[in-house]
C-alpha cells in the first residue's frame, strides 16, 4: 500500500489491533473465567470477582485425588484416542477411494455421510440405548467408540478427500518412471504428502470425540466408561464435594488445556482442515 502515508498505515494498524483485541477478549473471557474459578479458595468462590483474590491449587488437588475424576479422564482419553485412530484409518481409506478412484456408488457414499453429518444424534439415543443393552455394549468403551466413529467419519472423509485432491498425482507417475514399484511410490511419495492432512483430520476428530456429551450421558451408567464432560455434570455437593463449583471448574480446566495447546500449535492446520472440508469437500 504505497499510496498510504506512514501515519495512515499506523492508524489502520491501530484500528485492526482494536478489532483483533475485541476478538481475543470475546474468545478468551469465558475460558479465563472458569480458570479463575478453579483457582479460588472456597471462601472467595462466591465473591463474583473476575480475578481471584486468594489463589489456591486445592481444587486441583481434590479432583486429582478422587477416582471419580481420574477414571473419567482415563475413559475420555482412551475412548477419544481409539475412536480417532479407527475413524482416521477408515476415513483415509474411503477418502482415498473418493478422491482418486472411479467406482459406482461414490455419490451414494458421499451422500450418506453427509446425511449422517447432519443427523440429530438424539434420534439415535433410544435405539442405541436399547440395542447396546441387548448386545452388552451399554456402559462399555466400545459402546461409546462405535457412535463416535460413526459421527466423526463424515468429518474425516470430507476433510481427507479435500486434502487428497490437492496432492499432485503426477508425482506418482514420476516415481514410477524413476523406478519405484507402486508400493514404493505410495510409501515414499504419496504417504509423506498425505501425512499432514491425516494429522489435521485426527485433531479435528479428536476434538469432536472429546467434546461429546449426549452419547456419553445416555450410553453410560457408571464410572466404568463415563467420560469427563458427564462426570463433571454429576459432581454434586454431596459429602465429598460440599460446593462442587471449584471442583467442576478445575476439572473443566484440565480437559480444556489439551485442546487449547492443540489449537495453539496447530491453528494453521485446523483452519485449513475445517475450511477445505467445508468448501472444496
Amino acid at each position: 500500500m504505497a499510496a498510504f502515508g506512514g501515519t495512515d498505515t499506523r492508524a489502520r494498524k491501530l484500528r485492526w489491533s482494536l478489532l483483533n483485541t475485541l476478538v481475543v477478549v470475546y474468545a478468551l473471557v469465558p475460558v479465563l473465567w472458569i480458570m479463575s474459578l478453579s483457582f479460588k479458595t472456597p471462601a472467595t468462590l462466591n465473591d463474583g470477582n473476575f480475578i481471584p483474590r486468594e489463589w489456591t491449587l486445592e481444587n486441583y488437588r481434590s479432583i486429582l485425588s478422587t477416582t471419580e475424576f481420574l477414571r473419567a479422564l482415563l475413559n475420555s482419553i482412551g475412548i477419544a484416542l481409539i475412536a480417532t485412530a479407527i475413524a482416521v484409518v477408515l476415513g483415509t481409506m474411503a477418502a482415498y477411494a473418493i478422491a482418486r478412484l472411479q467406482f459406482p456408488g461414490k455419490r451414494l457414499l458421499v451422500g450418506v455421510s453427509l446425511l449422517i453429518a447432519m443427523f440429530p444424534q438424539i434420534s439415535l439415543v433410544s435405539p442405541l440405548f436399547e440395542i447396546e443393552r441387548t448386545l452388552g455394549l451399554f456402559d462399555t468403551w466400545p459402546g461409546l467408540i462405535l457412535p463416535y466413529i460413526t459421527f466423526s467419519l463424515p468429518l474425516a472423509i470430507y476433510t481427507l478427500s479435500a486434502f487428497f485432491r490437492e496432492i499432485p498425482w503426477e508425482l506418482e507417475k514420476a516415481a514410477k518412471m524413476d523406478g519405484a514399484t507402486p508400493g514404493q511410490a505410495f510409501l515414499k511419495v504419496i504417504a509423506p504428502l498425505a501425512a499432514p492432512g491425516v494429522f489435521t483430520t485426527a485433531i479435528l476428530v479428536f476434538i469432536f470425540c472429546w467434546n461429546d456429551f449426549l452419547f456419553a450421558l445416555t450410553l453410560t451408567s457408571t464410572e466404568r466408561s463415563r467420560t469427563v464432560p458427564v462426570a463433571l455434570s454429576f459432581f454434586t455437593g454431596d459429602s465429598q464435594f460440599q460446593d462442587p463449583t471449584g471442583s467442576i471448574s478445575a476439572a473443566a480446566v484440565v480437559i480444556t488445556v489439551p485442546i487449547i495447546v492443540a489449537v495453539l500449535f496447530f491453528q494453521r492446520r485446523i483452519v485449513a482442515g475445517l475450511t477445505s472440508g467445508a468448501v472444496k469437500g
Binding site: 472458569i34 467434546n211 456429551f213 463433571l232 485442546i259 491453528q267 485446523i270
Partner: peptide, 12 residues
C-alpha cells in the same frame, strides 16, 4: 483465539 471456542468442550 477464534478457534478456542470451537475447540473447547461445550459442557465446560
Amino acid at each position: 483465539s477464534a478457534l478456542v471456542p470451537y475447540g473447547i468442550v461445550t459442557v465446560v
